[in-house]
């Protein structure tokens, strides 16, 4: 079942929470792969510093893979693995990104 297509910029500015209701950040940009014609990630800013403590410093954003997205409504819900980044033995796929400005 496919919902009506939305403009990608409608994601920008939405708040992102984990499935457990933990605030993660705010969508700042959307990463695309034009070869596979898909959205591959969400670039987040205004991060929850407690969640990313010791991993991401002040002016850095993160990109979460789009396959972690569970629901998009008034807010965006993502897989709660985002809360367990520091304990995972396999390198998490969250990438840090310098803020554009």
């Amino acid at each position: 079942m496919n919902a009506a297509p939305e403009e990608i910029t409608s994601l920008v500015g939405r708040e992102v929470y984990s499935n457990n209701g933990v605030f993660v950040g705010e969508v700042e940009d959307v990463r695309l792969d034009l070869d596979t014609q898909s959205v591959t990630g969400l670039a987040l800013a205004e991060l929850n510093h407690e969640l990313f403590a010791g991993r991401v410093d002040g002016n850095t954003g993160v990109i979460v893979p789009y396959r972690w997205v569970r629901a998009v409504g008034d807010v965006v819900l993502i897989n709660d693995v985002i809360e367990r980044l520091e304990t995972g033995t396999d390198e998490p796929e969250v990438e840090t990104e310098q803020q554009a400005t």
Partner: peptide, 16 residues
């Protein structure tokens, strides 16, 4: 101007 997508699958549709 913009790009349309399916929010659920992440599939891109059209350039506007």
């Amino acid at each position: 101007y913009n790009i349309t997508m399916d929010l659920k699958s992440g599939q891109l549709h059209h350039l506007l």
